[in-house]
Design a protein around this nucleic acid. Structure first.
Lengths: 207, 207, 207, 207
DNA sequence: TATGAATGAGTTTTCATTCAT
DNA sequence: GATGAATGAAAACTCATTCAT
């Protein structure tokens, strides 16, 4: 469908030129005329919003599939799959992902459509949150810092993905997935979960 | 100095309207005329770059002071201070920070000045990296995933700061600092460092 | 015939949106596709011209029928019928009539087709003129201001119709017809025609 | 002031090209750049509205001055002056007046500003109405058709002015003023006012 | 014959930048 | 230095018209 072709082209151009890319460039990339752009999207605002929604739905559908499939799968397995889904999505849309992930301010009228970005991010973090809550209730994760888990894990994934994108464009997603989950889990894991702990938190003398 | 007043105004406007904000709006917020803007900055490009440099220097100076002050301080203490510095800086410039942190694409001609953002982020991550390297060489941190540490920790801080900014605007920085360092350390800490580990990494059967 | 359906739709849309209405809106109102519009009218210009011609012919045929029917009818009766014809036509096409009556400028290239409007108006005024000339030659009307009569009467009818359209949408046409003819006749009537005059025109001392 | 210069230019261009004239043409005629147009008027809509308001105020101020000046002047004199004011205003803005007078439909969003036209016309007719009411209360005008007077007189003036504009561009306003007032007055004049009447209205047998 | 998606020239609108005061 | 009206190149957007189906 042309509408989808336009969105793919838009992502490509936005990724290369930023969200200010000219409508004409998007049209050219999509292989259509400017007029056609406006047949599908009322204005630039709608086009951006359309792209965000499109990508966001793809990701959420994928995450939901991964999470719900084996309902009784062990928490760690689900987490691994989820993280790989995220990293692979980031990887597939590396360049545009930078924009999607940016968390631009939304107060402004002209960037009103960018609220969609926050909503999108929030929904993804919420999905993480739901899975991590399972981990807490199943006793695998310590309940102590539970509210931080989702955002922190998401931040780790995102930052690592961005950095990798710039430093070693060809890095494998699977490897990273392993490392990041380990990094996260071994910190969040409950004392009695599996590994035993001695000195839980270093006392930092705040002045 | 007017120059600084302009930069502060620019941050304010950018935070509210995004980097596309009009020069006139910046001038109005700074309480000067557009002409004055151009007396201090050759063009919009220079103004943006000036702001980034300004904020970036403030942060780096602070980080450097924290890191270098007690040269022989124990690694964990230095890390704690560094993390608090970062969170406090994020907090002070919450809104604009979103833009600074965004990692917009830089290939574009018109966003050439935005390269400064990446450079800025990279320098901060590099400082984290240097401190964390100390942790590795002093035996506190496991060398296994060492290359990931800086980016992952930075990602955790950033994501948590953004989320907190939106969900609980009045949250204390100190508390978070504590939690995040613990979350990071207990995962990254070397097996023999302090807590002992049993099952290092779950084998995930990739299909 | 579709052609006529299109013209009726066009009148409707022009009446609501002005002559700048989009072809697509006309097509939608007519219940056909834009393509079909172009099967019947070479371009927008022809469509507008077609509508004007259509309505104008209807009016002129009606006027001619009224005027010529009883060739030897007394002048006043003919005038009454004529006026009622006009008011009823105005009434039937109230909204579009505003556009038809507007007398838009015609010098412009893009409004070339609007010349048709003036031509149309002129033809109607000419018909009035011919009937009023009969009144003059038959001695019922004073020859003094004869050249003004047609335009002035037409102006009275038009203005009153428009105003009534806005102020009392349900007003009866017949009543108005009576009143306007009386207002016109008693002023234009020759001194010896019927009512006698004393002070013909007040001397106004121009500075 | 530039703002006024723009309005004068706009009137000129609108008169020649219609309300769809390109902003660039208006700018060129005003001797400024397009940008300057937008410094004074937010968009085309505002420019049109601004011009209408501007001209309308000029006319109303003039009419008010004429009407109120000699408070106890005889009705007929006041009427004469008023009519001459109107015809002279029409004459001064002959071409654009066609647009001002047109009474375009106002339902449409895009012509929303044109409501101003109707308001403008209404205010002028209202002023006529107030003066004519004086004529009725002073016994000079017959009360019978009083509600029609203002609109009818205005219609006469307008139609005659337009027609004269096209047929004899150089016609004198003063002469017409005389004729039209006589045409109107001798019809509207009260039976006892001055001239006596015999046959008031011919009975027209409606079918 | 009807359709309606695609077209792109034509306009409107924006806004960084200049410069006379 | 500061000012802010003027500028005009660049971009956004519109819509009459075409033409393959």
């Amino acid at each position: 469908m042309t509408s989808q072709g336009i969105l793919e082209a838009a992502e490509d151009v936005f990724a290369r030129q930023g969200l200010r890319a000219r409508m004409e460039d998007i049209a050219a990339t999509a292989g259509v005329s400017v007029g056609t752009l406006y047949n599908y999207f009322a204005d630039r605002e709608q086009l951006v919003a359309g792209l965000l929604t499109y990508r966001h739905q793809q990701l959420c559908e994928r995450l939901d599939r991964s999470v719900s499939a084996p309902v009784d799968a062990p928490f760690e397995r689900v987490l691994h799959v989820l993280v790989r889904d995220l990293l692979e999505h980031f990887d597939a849309h590396r360049a545009f992902f930078a924009v999607l992930m940016q968390g631009e301010p939304m107060e402004s009228v002209r960037t009103r459509s960018l609220c969609a970005i926050q909503t999108s991010l929030d929904e993804v973090v919420d999905r993480l949150d739901r899975v991590l809550a399972r981990g807490v209730s199943s006793g695998v994760l310590s309940p102590t810092e539970a509210p931080l888990y989702a955002a922190a894990l998401f931040g780790m994934l995102r930052a690592t993905a961005v950095r990798t994108y710039r430093t070693q464009p060809a890095a494998g997603v699977a490897t990273q997935s392993e490392s990041l989950v380990r990094l996260f889990l071994d910190g969040a894991r409950a004392p009695g979960g599996a590994p035993s702990r001695i000195e839980p938190t270093p006392k930092e003398p705040t002045p």
